[in-house]
């Protein structure tokens, strides 16, 4: 056991020896202050890479330890051939360098935006829909809708514009010609939108206008002008300076009330969900 302990002590001493012999190179504790030769070597003998063994730029501010050795007042000691350029720019040049992480240029202002929107509305079952079902017409209460619109920002966060759209639904019949209801509408809109960073925008929109509903049953058309209203929320993800895409959701009023002698109504609005693509200029 004693010989094992002695061997361990000897190994420990051998392992510690290189550490003790290694000179302090990082301006470490004052008790381990480098010699004058080491300090002068930093300033007068740059390595081939333009830095000394510490990795410091020879022209940069000296470490605090050099305060014990005042900087010479004469011309700087220059090795033959001058200071290698790879050593980096002078402090003055460094100040003129561009910021390595420059701020990105601001997004260009939007003068107008053109939007294309597709969505599906889910109206409540209306009395006319129910009556058609009684007559063996089968329809799914999902109303596909398409819009094209133009929006103009009055200020960065408040835009106004207009939309033109089409929507419709159909009812199939086992024996007879299918029935359909189609609406074309025009809306005036106002929206507020907020940019959350460079990519994300959120906003809300309200719009009002009018539409023409055409209901065809048995190959015969009946049409009516009706009022329109929409309340919409949206999220837009910018695809660059001139485009964005994102979901739209909300509720729309698109009803034809009192459409026959039985005071039936037809609803083509209701809650909706869709996707919009915006192009900006």
């Amino acid at each position: 056991m004693r010989s094992l302990g002695a061997a361990l002590v000897a190994l420990g001493l051998l392992a510690a020896a290189p550490l003790r012999a290694q000179p302090e190179v990082d301006g470490g504790p004052a008790t381990e202050a480098p010699t004058a030769e080491t300090v002068s070597g930093r300033g007068s003998e740059p390595s081939a890479a333009g830095t000394d063994a510490t990795g410091l730029d020879p022209t940069s501010q000296p470490p605090a330890l050099q305060t014990e050795h005042p900087r010479p007042t004469g011309p700087p000691i220059v090795p033959p051939g001058g200071v290698p350029e790879v050593g980096g720019p002078s402090p003055g040049e460094r100040e003129r360098e561009p910021d390595p992480t420059p701020s990105r240029p601001p997004l260009p202002p939007t003068h107008y935006a053109v939007e294309l929107q597709v969505r599906a509305s889910f109206p409540e079952e209306s009395s006319f829909h129910r009556a058609l079902s009684d007559l063996r017409y089968r329809g799914v209460r999902v109303v596909p809708t398409g819009y094209v619109g133009v929006q103009i920002p009055l200020v960065e966060w408040f835009w106004v514009g207009g939309r033109l759209g089409m929507r419709g639904m159909t009812w199939a019949h086992f024996d007879l010609e299918d029935a359909s209801a189609i609406m074309a509408d025009a809306l005036v809109t106002a929206q507020v939108r907020v940019a959350l960073g460079r990519v994300l925008e959120i906003g809300a929109l309200v719009g009002g206008g009018a539409g023409v509903v055409d209901v065809q049953v048995g190959g015969v058309d009946a049409a009516q002008v009706v009022g329109r209203f929409v309340a919409e929320g949206f999220v837009a993800f910018r695809l660059g300076d001139n485009a964005s895409v994102g979901p739209r959701f909300g509720w729309g009023y698109a009803q034809w009330e009192g459409m026959n002698a039985y005071d039936h109504g037809l609803d083509l609005g209701g809650p909706f969900f869709g996707l919009a693509l915006e192009g900006r200029e």
Partner: peptide
């Protein structure tokens, strides 16, 4: 005609 001009 019933609930629509095309329905009887």
């Amino acid at each position: 005609e019933t609930l629509h001009p095309g329905e009887h």
